[in-house]
């Protein structure tokens, strides 16, 4: 990975969490999480199962709102604006903050319709424009060459790795600024995983990417910054290289050296 020194002036953070607490009903899942995610970089969230990393990820596009009985305290700022402020337009927020899920979840529609879905619901009606967006999104997701001759075929016929890239293309099609990825390669074979990682490497230039992963090698390979979560708390956050070579907290060291997790 790139040297940590390069990030001395990453500019204004894209995403800032300020003392975020989060509850599922009576159960508290996040405790006082504060962190600043730099723009146009890849930030990895690591930690053992149930440490709150996915929950934290889902607070950023308010996908936890869908679950009943959840509650958040603290602030989450994107470009300095609190996304939990009353009156926030969740639709606009989710257009800016795209998401790729753990299990690829294309719609049972054609490849074209999958990618065109987002632009359509946001009001793009012009057919030529849609075709252009679909093509560009698929090119960016490194899937175009494989599917350009069968855009009208069902997305369900694609392989697991292709489906996941299709989901990335679908997220890119609404032109987001931030892309959240929740263990995007955990259900894929090593070759497909490598393709997804290559893709993340290409996308870092234009997007702020936050990726949850169980796989520490993956975090080391793809990310510029890493955050280590444990039992709902953010234990350590820093440039990936530094966190993996000279962690400052004992728990981080124990986790990355495989003593638990």
């Amino acid at each position: 990975m790139v040297e940590g020194q390069q990030y001395e002036d990453p500019g204004r953070p894209k995403v800032e969490a300020e003392s975020v607490d989060f509850w599922y009903g009576p159960t508290q899942a996040l405790f006082d999480v504060s962190m600043s995610v730099p723009a146009r970089r890849v930030t990895a969230l690591i930690g053992p199962s149930g440490c709150g990393k996915s929950t934290f990820l889902r607070t950023l596009n308010r996908m936890n709102d869908v679950i009943e009985g959840t509650r958040l305290a603290g602030r989450i700022l994107i470009d300095g604006e609190d996304v939990y402020r009353a009156g926030t337009n969740v639709v606009a927020l989710r257009k800016r903050v795209g998401m790729v899920f753990q299990k690829s979840n294309p719609f049972p529609k054609t490849i074209f319709e999958n990618v065109a879905y987002g632009p359509r619901i946001h009001g793009t009606r012009n057919r030529a424009e849609l075709i252009e967006i679909v093509e560009q999104s698929l090119i960016r997701a490194a899937l175009w060459e494989e599917v350009k001759d069968r855009l009208d075929a069902s997305a369900m016929g694609l392989s697991g790795g292709q489906q996941q890239r299709l989901c990335i293309a679908r997220a890119l099609a609404v032109d987001p600024e931030i892309i959240l990825m929740d263990e995007p390669a955990s259900a894929l074979d090593p070759r497909s995983t490598a393709r997804i990682e290559d893709l993340i490497d290409q996308l870092r230039v234009d997007y702020t990417i936050i990726i949850v992963t169980h796989n520490m090698q993956q975090a080391a390979r793809v990310s510029d910054f890493t955050a280590f979560f444990f039992e709902g708390r953010l234990i350590e956050f820093g440039p990936t290289k530094q966190l993996f070579t000279t962690p400052t907290v004992k728990q981080t060291e124990d986790y990355i050296t495989g003593r638990f997790g």
């Binding site: 989710r94 998401m99 619901i121 997220a171």
Partner: peptide
């Protein structure tokens, strides 16, 4: 997962219903 995908793309609940859930 279909509904989550649609909501995460910024679709409203009603759009998700008519354009994803019912067709599926």
């Amino acid at each position: 997962s279909y509904k989550s995908a649609s909501l995460a793309l910024g679709a409203s609940r009603l759009q998700t219903l008519w354009k994803v859930t019912v067709p599926a």
